[in-house]
């Protein structure tokens, strides 16, 4: 018999609006240039750091690959990262030298790489005092993806910090941790470039988080 004062938690709260795929034409709404629409005065896009941003300027690039090994050419990614001192700059302002939030997309043509122009984030000290290695939080939306896939990008030249990172260490399988580590390349004009492919399914499948 039910306790008279018992109510399941779900009945005490509203239910979250259900998620749906962003679909094939997500660019119309969130990446106007990619859709071929005229851009508005201010768009939220992939230049997170300007010339005056404090810290090391970097480019972050990658592809998105499906379970057949084919390129996902219609993905939209959202990035959220700390500044070079490990602080989030939440007040989005295109006049500011750095914004913690950015968007990018893979495209129908060519190599279909997404790109972020940003700075290398600093380490972040978590509530419990443990230090998280520098990382960029990424959310992936696309046709066929019913609710966004949430992951993190880490940097291969931060090996010591990565070894200690509580979030990387929460991944039970050590080989799977490697799916989050971006590899360093020499980029154009002396700007270091980090590359991370996101594999949605199968061999080398990227770790996705629930939080």
């Amino acid at each position: 018999m039910e306790q008279p004062n018992f109510k399941p938690t779900a009945e005490l709260m509203l239910r979250e609006t259900a998620s749906q795929t962003a679909g094939p034409y997500v660019h119309i709404g969130l990446a106007l240039d990619v859709a071929g629409l005229p851009e508005r005065d201010e768009e939220i896009w992939n230049r997170m750091a300007g010339e005056d941003a404090e810290g090391e300027r970097i480019e972050v690039v990658g592809r998105v690959i499906d379970g057949n090994g084919d390129l996902v050419r219609d993905a939209l990614l959202e990035a959220w990262q700390a500044d070079s001192r490990g602080n989030y700059q939440a007040g989005f302002d295109l006049k500011a030298p750095f914004n913690s939030f950015g968007r990018t997309a893979t495209t129908a043509a060519g190599d279909s790489e997404w790109v972020l122009h940003t700075i290398k984030p600093g380490s972040i000290t978590a509530e419990d005092g443990r230090v998280m290695a520098p990382h960029i939080t990424l959310s992936l939306f696309a046709r066929g993806v019913n609710i966004q896939l949430q992951t993190r990008l880490y940097f291969e030249d931060e090996a010591a910090a990565n070894d200690q990172c509580p979030v990387l260490n929460a991944i039970e399988s050590p080989p799977r941790r490697q799916t989050l580590i971006a590899r360093k390349e020499s980029g154009e004009a002396g700007i270091p470039r980090y590359r991370l492919d996101i594999v949605l399914q199968g061999d080398g499948e990227t770790v996705f988080f629930d939080y």
Binding site: T137, G144, N146, A170, I171, V207, F209
Partner: peptide, 19 residues
Amino acid sequence: SIPRSPNQALVSLQNPSIS
């Protein structure tokens, strides 16, 4: 969704951080 869904379980962050 068939080729675009992960096969592996999501990794739950027990203590979400400022990130």
